Simulated scan of single mutants.
Amino acid sequence: MPARTITVASVLASSLLAAALSAGCSGSSSSAGSAEPKGEPPLTKAEAEKVLASYTAAVDRAARTFSPKPLRTVETDPQFTMDVAALKFRRAVKQRPTKLHFTNTSFYIPRLTGYPQWFAAGAATVRNKQTVRHALLFTRAKADAPWLLTVAPQVGDTALSKVALGSDGYATPVAPDAKDLAVAPGRLPAAHAALLTEGPRAAGASVLAEGAQTTETYKALKEGEKTLAGRGVTLSSRFAAAPYDVYALRTRDRGALVWYVLKQKEAYSSSRPGRLSVSGDLVGLAPAGSGRTRMDTTVLVQYLAAVPPEGRATVTGLYRKAVHVK
């Protein structure tokens, strides 16, 4: 559910690290990769507005009951798995979500030639008197399938305004293997995962610009590992491209906005029982209170990146959620 606040070092802040310290495709490979319009838009703006309204109503039903059942009708993975984990957290801490209300909506509907079909929507929510902007991406697997929210990273105010629109108001999708960009959209997940795991000198990592969700996150991870080691806790963290499609839209500078997902595996260990505990972002995913010497977590991270025709890609948005604890 898209009303979330994320800090620069969110890869650490909402993971077990906080607990340990306190304890002591575009639509298909055939989608257009050039500026020439191809295919047909899968729906109209009016129909897209109805999709967003139906999604909002279902999220509110889920929030009232702390039940993921309504989400099954309007979401698919990775969004569904992440939002179910968010519901578990809220249920555990007895914190009911506020009513979801989108404002300043905009729609970016590409011309497509195959399935899955998809479109993007920009929308804002207000949380704790702060406005948060989201880049929601909906997909449907076939003609008679429902539209489902697939990813919804938080973004800056101007991220989606860069999307190029034709005279008819429709956008142009970019293929995962597009050759006219600084890096093909399909290569971004592996490059980003390599940077966060091995650092900016990792193979392929040079395609990403320095920033909060790239080099600064890697530095924060390394500093966190050192801090934990001083308290008797060992942390290892590895990122990999998650098994979800990559989606991209052409921007006015002949670049692309790219949605993609990474999976993070964190392993914590300590020789002293009780040093590790379930808290922070992990609450609701496993029983709290019992002493542990080993804990493994799985985290999903959605990203939005701007890829220029030349230069390096800039990560402009994300949504991160721990989804499993062992």
Rank of each mutant, 00 (worst) to 15 (best):
E49D: 06
D83M: 00
K99G: 07
N128E: 14
P97N: 08
A92S: 14
V93A: 06
F107Q: 06
L52V: 15
A58N: 10
P41G: 10
F138L: 10
E49P: 06
A123L: 06
V132E: 13
T73P: 03
L52Y: 07
F66T: 01
A62Q: 02
A141F: 07
E40G: 07
P78D: 06
V126Q: 11
R90V: 00
A46Y: 00
T98R: 04
V155Q: 12
T125M: 07
F107N: 06
A92P: 03
P153F: 10
E75Y: 03
K45V: 15
R91W: 03
A143P: 00
R61P: 02
R64E: 15
F138D: 09
L43F: 13
H101R: 14
V74P: 08
R140Q: 07
A58M: 09
T158D: 15
A145S: 14
L137N: 08
T98E: 10
P68G: 07
A63T: 04
Q117G: 05
P41Y: 04
W147F: 10
R96W: 03
T125G: 02
K50T: 15
G33P: 00
A85W: 04
A143C: 00
A86K: 05
T139W: 00
A85P: 02
T131D: 02
R61E: 15
V132K: 13
A85M: 01
Q154A: 14
T65C: 00
R61C: 03
T81N: 06
A145I: 04
A123C: 10
R140H: 02
K99D: 12
T98A: 11
L100P: 13
L112C: 08
F138P: 03
G156L: 05
P97T: 04
P70C: 06
T131A: 07
H134L: 13
Q79S: 11
Y115I: 10
D77C: 04
Q79V: 01
L43S: 13
Q154D: 11
Q79N: 09
A85T: 00
V126H: 06
T73C: 05
P70G: 09
R91G: 11
A135N: 12
T44H: 05
L137R: 13
R61L: 13
E47Q: 14
Q130G: 11
Q130W: 02
G122A: 09
F138V: 06
L43Q: 11
R91K: 15
P110I: 10
R111L: 06
D83Y: 01
D60H: 08
T73H: 13
T76H: 07
P116V: 09
T158N: 14
